[in-house]
Amino acid sequence: MNGSRRFLASFLPAAALCAVVALAALLFADAYLAQVAFLTGITVILVLGESFAVGNMGQLLMCQAGFYGIGAYVSALLEMHGMPPYLAPAVGITCGAVSGLVVGLAATRIRGHYLAIVTLAIGVIVEELLNNLQGITNGPIGLVGVPTFFGPLNAGNQADYIVVVWGAVIVVLGCLALLRESRFGWFLRAIRDSEAAAESIGLRIGTYQVATVTVAAAVAGLAGALYTNYAGLLVPDLFSYGLSAQILATAVLGGINSFGGAVVSSLVFNGVPQMAQVTAFYQYLIFGVVLIVMMQFAPRGLSQIGVYAVSLARRRLLGWGAGQPNAATVRRP
């Protein structure tokens, strides 16, 4: 199954792109752009987790924001009670994984549209709990004065923040790409392709669904812990159902099961509008309209456009056929 070659093919381009983005941010970013670079890194992590679940398991999760929120709040609360910030990523991953496990076990037998709605409900429950458990979360006012990794973002430490978040992006990319080429990944795609056939070769579907939700949730939990230690303040609104929907949409826009696509789509649809200092209102509008238009004309996302562009370029520039490049079909001008 050519595991290592496939791993490199999916990991290297995406990781290289991330490294370039991070490097550009390190070299050229002012304080504002550093902030954008950090937040975009967080988005990339969230989208990668979702993309892994949707692409390999073939099921929609609409509660990434919930797992993100749990990772963020738990690590914030522990830090406010004295935990050193460098433990936060581990805490975020653990909290995400545990909550993913719980959700996965609750939804073992639920699939398809039902799973989308149930996870949507779970996401909203988390948001409501963050609002309502006022004794712990301080309700809608949120947590203020959470410790951070390197203090408030400034010219002195922006490089540290960028290295931490984009380093995490690359690690997440590597782990997910490894997982995708492991037997676990193959089993997931077997289940996605045909549940009945997967059962006939001895795979218990529920088990793999629980595992996938756990992985996606752990990734989101990590993003939450990183965000906390940058922002220093949390409010429930940051973890709304709308964010889950946007994460799902960004993953789909990138092209399901394409890590490179997920990175590009997070950059294009989240990073660029922020870089251009477009107001939140227009970001929202543009994202919505682009989403509609993309789904009309390229429902398989940016990676579909990428494949099309490459084949078009081959045809135009090199005279190759649209299919596999093959020496026999090369027409010399």
């Binding site: 789909v252 509008l285 309209v289």
Partner: peptide, 9 residues
């Protein structure tokens, strides 16, 4: 997915 976009728009 489109309905998410429609909702935002």
């Amino acid at each position: 997915i489109t309905s998410v976009g429609l909702s935002m728009a």
